[in-house]
Amino acid sequence: MMKGADPDAPRLWREGDRLHVDVRGLCCPEPLVAVLRLIDGGEAGDGLVAHVSQEPLLLYPELNARGWRYRLVAPRGDDEVALEMSRPRA
């Protein structure tokens, strides 16, 4: 899923062992759907960092229901915050 092929697709990349997804600029509820597709589809593995335009309120109940831990990292700029998510250890 790389931007360019589909302007509405999120950009994905890896930093170390952690998958990152940039969902900034996508229309509601695309950021929510993109992140949950990665988590439910198994691509995220045990952790994922989502780069979002604003605090992803819609995502929290879904992560809570899946038992995932998350923390919002301090804003990087006027239009970006990062949400670090991790699967709880069994």
Partner: peptide, 13 residues
């Protein structure tokens, strides 16, 4: 579990 929530820019009433 929520570890930290920066809600300064929250749109939640």
């Amino acid at each position: 579990m929520t570890l930290f929530l920066a809600s300064a820019r929250s749109r939640l009433l």
